[in-house]
Write a protein that binds this DNA or RNA. Structure first.
Length: 304
DNA sequence: AACCTGTACAACCGCTATTCT
DNA sequence: AAGAATAGCGGTTGTACAGGT
């Protein structure tokens, strides 16, 4: 069945797994095709089953990763737009290295992609910026790029974000600042953005998040100094043509099964709409939260 | 042309959380 | 309730490739 001579590249190795050996390393186009075909016709199930039934000598974990990071039809590939960069930087300042949660706000982008982008590009850029700014400039020092910014945020207070389900506006992504201090409980020393996001249905992975937010849907004036980034417009139509085209191309990609529902709802101009989540955060009503929204000047998100 | 170096990114690994039996 | 299986996450490594010498 499997022949080592078929290996497409030298970078392929194998690990023994009982009766047969599992391939490792880069995926060949043939493997991609098998997995893609299988996923499109059967949907996502148990990944070890996927690996077996698709006729791949890969572990389920490897198949899952390949699908999520590379083969998923809704992936937006190509360079990050300035808007996306800004958003990543901003979210990272809040969430730290919680790549999956950051990715949840960037439709078509994967945690791995964002992580790589951060480590290879943004981190370097921030580092450079720190060297070109005086130490007294609080926006430029290196630690601001990650945990320090994060910590300073949650030293202030707690912040949650949510989607306004009642609005079809592309700018319906709104930021919410909550003046309540969770710290009083003493339990969640590590802040609650993720909790809030999860509770409103935004933090539970990629699949449920499509249609949440286009990166260009709102402007984020970065708190951090990042040298070459263009200033960001709030104009939702400013999304790059390429992105728009890709979004449109993805419009018809729908995969359904028990665990996987992918459906991009888009309006006529390629913006995403959000539907059908129960927008409660624990015991809070959104209306109550909204009342406090404007009281947090450190937030860069626009609150309608 | 050959080698070296830096960069981007795909993939793996180890761990934790969750679900299933 | 406990253990096994599975899913998911973040850190790290490995590879391909481009550019410089």
């Amino acid at each position: 069945m499997w022949n080592p001579d078929d290996l497409p590249g030298k970078n392929i190795s194998h690990v023994s797994n009982g009766n047969y050996r599992l391939r490792k390393g880069l995926w060949s186009p043939e493997e991609d095709e098998k997995l893609m075909k299988y996923m499109l016709s059967n949907g996502q199930g148990c990944w070890s089953e996927v690996a077996r039934n698709a006729g791949l000598q890969r572990c389920g974990k490897s198949c899952r990763l390949r699908w999520i990071n590379y083969l998923r039809p809704d992936l937006k590939r190509g360079a990050f737009s300035p808007q996306e960069e800004e958003l990543i930087i901003h979210l990272h300042s809040i969430l730290g290295n919680r790549w999956s949660q950051i990715a949840a706000h960037l439709p078509g982008r994967t945690d791995n992609e964002i992580k790589n982008f951060w480590n290879s590009t943004i981190k370097k850029r921030l580092k450079n910026s720190s060297s070109t700014h005086s130490p007294n400039n609080s926006d430029s020092s290196e630690p601001r790029d990650a945990m320090e910014g994060f910590i300073s945020m949650h030293e202030h207070d707690t912040m949650c974000m949510y989607m306004d389900s009642s609005s079809s506006s592309p700018s319906s992504m709104q930021a919410m600042a909550i003046s309540n201090r969770f710290g009083s409980s003493g339990a969640a020393g590590y802040f609650n953005v993720s909790t809030c996001l999860t509770q409103v249905g935004m933090g539970d992975g990629f699949y449920g998040d499509h249609g949440v937010l286009g990166a260009g849907d709102f402007g984020v004036e970065g708190e951090l100094f990042v040298p070459p980034l263009e200033s960001i417009s709030i104009d939702e139509n400013a999304t790059s043509d390429k992105t728009m085209e890709e979004n449109t191309n993805n419009k018809n990609n729908t995969i359904n099964n028990n665990n996987y529902k992918l459906e991009n709802n888009m309006d006529g101009v390629g913006n995403y709409n959000w539907e059908g989540e129960n927008l409660r955060m624990g015991e809070w009503e959104l209306g109550d939260l909204m009342e406090d929204a404007s009281s947090f000047p450190f937030l860069d998100f626009q609150v309608e």
